[in-house]
Design a protein around this nucleic acid. Structure first.
Length: 265
DNA sequence: ATGGTTGCAGCGCAA
């Protein structure tokens, strides 16, 4: 009798939670996702608008940072066993938070942008991906349902890029970055959005503020949900919520939704 | 167009 119940996950690079708070609150009220992964909250935990979000019946888990980065998990259900940072990766930037919700492990990740191929930040990005790979390998050994959502700052294939020639071997699209992402898939994780929309080009999640990219649909798919095989068995729906990208004072990223059949009714 | 726009912080840096 619980067969039709769903748990709705959303991931959104919000690009400053304080700048985007009215938009976030309206969006939460309208869409009512059960669990939300946020990236680039760009604030310390003490400056996070916790009260406004808790008023909408969300629990909050934070890994904040001043000015840059910062990740969070919002959940209608209790949040347990919070982990801040990728275990085993020494990092002074707040880019990963993991927890257990309704018995299932969940995580919100903000993979480094990398700035330019060959830069110091680029190699930091590749190092981050290696450590993420090692940690996910550990988690997958449990053979349990697990969901990871976030801004990976990688367009996995040319299908995920509005103009692959212009972006050929540039940041977000270089072969080492793509191999890093692909290695996560080869571990056995499933790219939820691509799984349900094979061959579809218009799955973009990010449009640069510059160059009227949104108006021209110059987009890239760089925000992803990765599911363990046990979670993928429950996958019912995945889509990009493009509507909010069109609003005034929008983030440059659109949220991605992922609906799983309820795993603990 | 090695430009363009946005957020944070209060100047340039990061994206």
């Amino acid at each position: 009798m619980y067969a039709f119940l769903m748990v709705t996950f959303a991931t959104w690079n919000i690009n400053s939670i304080r700048m985007r708070l009215p938009l976030l609150l309206a969006w939460l009220k309208e869409k009512v996702p059960d669990v939300v992964f946020l990236q680039e909250i760009k604030t310390t935990d003490d400056q996070f608008p916790r009260d406004e979000i808790e008023t909408l019946n969300y629990n909050v888990a934070l890994f904040g940072q001043k000015t840059y980065n910062g990740v969070a998990i919002l959940s209608k259900y209790p949040i347990e066993d919070v982990v801040q940072g990728v275990p085993g990766f020494k990092d002074d930037q707040a880019r990963y938070i993991e927890a257990v919700i309704k018995g299932m492990r969940v995580a919100s990740v903000y993979v480094p942008n990398g700035m330019a191929v060959g830069s110091d930040k680029y190699f930091y990005k590749l190092d981050f991906l290696k450590s993420l790979y090692a940690h996910l390998q550990t988690l997958l050994a449990y053979d349990e349902a697990f969901i990871l959502g976030g801004d990976f700052n990688i367009a996995p294939t040319d299908l995920d890029v509005y103009d692959p020639k212009e972006w050929h071997e540039t940041i977000l699209c270089s072969t080492p970055e793509r191999e890093g992402f692909r290695s996560l898939l080869y571990l056995g994780l499933i790219d939820a959005l691509r799984e349900l929309h094979p061959g579809k080009k218009e799955l973009y999640t990010w449009w640069d503020y510059r160059g009227a990219a949104w108006q021209n649909d110059f987009g890239l798919r760089i925000d992803h949900f990765l599911l363990s095989p046990q979670a993928a068995d429950l996958l019912k729906n995945a889509y990009v919520d493009k509507e909010i990208r069109d609003t005034d004072k929008a983030s440059d990223h659109a949220p991605v939704f992922c609906e799983l059949q309820d795993y603990a009714p």
